[in-house]
């Protein structure tokens, strides 16, 4: 039965993963972290993650343009890396997102995205 720590370990096993965390995006608080973070600061990274999610959720018109068309994941690519944000849909009230930082050279976006989808589902699936 995977717990939060196990989920993050698995995330770090994704090819090219440098760091991973689970972030509460209402407050920008890292609920759990592992590995490296941009600027070696998980808390600042989490706050930034929360801002990005809030912006996508509330200020972009393509999210929720139709009923039940909810945000699933966000991918930000930079010259040096991939930053993947996957919403963790719990049935109870929580606003969590799984964040994985991938190295640009070693990471594979498609593989990572599928693995994260599986991880986020397993974390909360019965």
């Amino acid at each position: 039965m995977p717990g939060v720590d196990h989920c993050l370990q698995e995330a770090m096993a994704i090819p090219g993963a440098v760091g991973a965390s689970i972030v509460d995006y209402t407050t920008g608080f890292p609920v759990a972290t592992t590995g490296a973070a941009p600027n070696s600061d998980h808390e600042a990274a989490a706050a930034g993650t929360a801002d990005v999610i809030q912006a996508a959720n509330s200020r972009s018109l393509f999210v929720s343009a139709m009923p039940h068309d909810l945000l699933e994941d966000l991918i930000i690519t930079t010259a040096g890396g991939y930053h993947l944000l996957r919403m963790v849909q719990t049935e109870f009230d929580s606003r969590l997102v799984l964040y994985v930082w991938l190295d640009r050279v070693q990471g594979n976006l498609a593989v990572a995205r599928r693995r994260m989808q599986k991880l986020a589902d397993e974390l909360v699936a019965t």
């Binding site: 039965m1 995977p2 717990g3 939060v4 608080f29 929580s94």
Partner: peptide, 18 residues
């Protein structure tokens, strides 16, 4: 008893604590 996954319980408790 299989009512919750470990991950769900942990996330729920963490959320409730903070």
């Amino acid at each position: 008893q299989g009512h919750l996954t470990r991950g769900e319980l942990e996330l729920c408790v963490l959320g409730a604590i903070y």
